[in-house]
């Protein structure tokens, strides 16, 4: 496979460029919006906080939003790349597997019917929901002689997504939730979130991202094929389990922060493979950095589509993601 960046030094430069873009993304996410803020004010608000309205907007609205977008984008992209490695199916991703919808459903039900509240409880519910759905879809997709096929997995994911989102809507309507919440749990959004939401999920996501990076070497072996991996002395079951836990932490964590955001897990890994090839030691960090950039950019863009109204970022990613999906599906979905 021909890649755009071939030598290690080129790839390192690419990652460095990514980090720069990431910084630009964070700053522009804070700067642009209904009230434009100069980048100097950002600096001031943290160094010389004077309680002015602009400083408050930065600290309570713009900064949390930027951080959540970055963290959700990074975790969805990395989760997608790991899932594609394990299932050897390029369409695998948290949204298509129904994992996002499942996690959202667990949070919605927990808060509506069982009086669960508190951010850490939400995160736990999201993890449980993500783990449950992931197991279900993986099992359903791999029953039968021909094992895990793209068609079966995608169908199972689509059916469970429809199932969980319909039930979520039912739960939200019976418990008299407001429209904002309904919307949020349906399409995912990073607007109007509190910094506490970020700090509640960030540790899990941080650990999972480090874990993903440590796992990269083993993922390279695993993607050679189950038989080859076993022959090379890998205990594939442990690697798959570890990857599964990381995926659940990443997908659940991002849903607890931003709701179910679609297609990031397909778009970013696909582009990154084109950039740096199949080596997971590069793919994982690239996915993390560029996933964050994608969601930051999509979020900034979503503020201008019908200015001054905002479109939830989950809608943006769904629209951007479809060409990728179509392209991969036309090739048959296998890597």
């Amino acid at each position: 496979m021909k890649t755009l960046l071939e030598t290690s030094s080129q790839k390192a430069v690419g990652l460095f460029v990514g980090l720069l873009l990431f910084a630009v993304g964070i700053v522009s996410s804070i700067v642009f919006g209904v009230a434009d803020i100069s980048w100097r004010t950002i600096w001031d608000s943290y160094v010389r906080f004077d309680g002015s309205q602009e400083h408050l907007i930065i600290q309570t609205a713009r900064m949390p939003r930027a951080l959540i977008a970055a963290a959700a984008g990074a975790s969805l992209a990395v989760a997608g790349s790991l899932m594609q490695g394990i299932t050897r199916n390029q369409l695998a991703s948290p949204s298509l597997f129904g994992i996002n919808a499942g996690a959202a459903f667990f949070i919605v039900t927990g808060s509506a019917f069982f009086g669960v509240s508190g951010l850490s409880a939400f995160a736990t519910l999201a993890f449980v929901g993500a783990a449950f759905t992931a197991t279900l879809v993986y099992t359903l997709g791999s029953i039968g002689n021909d094992g895990l096929t793209p068609l079966k997995v995608t169908l199972a994911g689509a059916a469970l997504t429809a199932f969980f989102s319909s039930l979520s809507l039912g739960v939200l309507l019976t418990s008299g939730q407001t429209f904002d919440q309904v919307l949020y749990w349906f399409v995912g959004s990073v607007a109007g979130r509190d910094l506490n939401i970020f700090t509640a999920a960030a540790p899990y996501i941080g650990i999972a991202l480090v874990g993903a990076f440590l796992l990269a070497r083993h993922m390279n072996v695993l993607t050679l094929g189950e038989d080859v991996a076993v022959g090379l002395g890998q205990k594939t079951i442990y690697i798959k389990l570890a990857a599964g836990v990381i995926i659940v932490l990443l997908a659940g964590g991002s849903v607890s922060m931003a709701g179910p955001i679609a297609f990031v897990g397909i778009i970013v890994p696909h582009l990154m493979r084109y950039l740096v090839g199949l080596d997971y030691r590069w793919v994982i960090p690239y996915c993390a950095v560029y996933g964050a950039i994608l969601l930051l950019a999509a979020d900034v863009g979503s503020r201008y589509i019908s200015f001054p109204k905002e479109v939830p970022v989950g809608i943006m990613t769904a629209v951007i993601g479809v060409p990728f999906f179509v392209f991969i599906a036309r090739r048959g979905g296998r890597s």
């Binding site: 949204s95 298509l96 995608t154 479809v322 999906f325 179509v326 599906a329």
Partner: peptide, 11 residues
């Protein structure tokens, strides 16, 4: 047809 359909449905 089914795979593309599912993707299009989301979009």
């Amino acid at each position: 047809l089914v795979l593309i359909g599912i993707g299009m449905a989301t979009a």
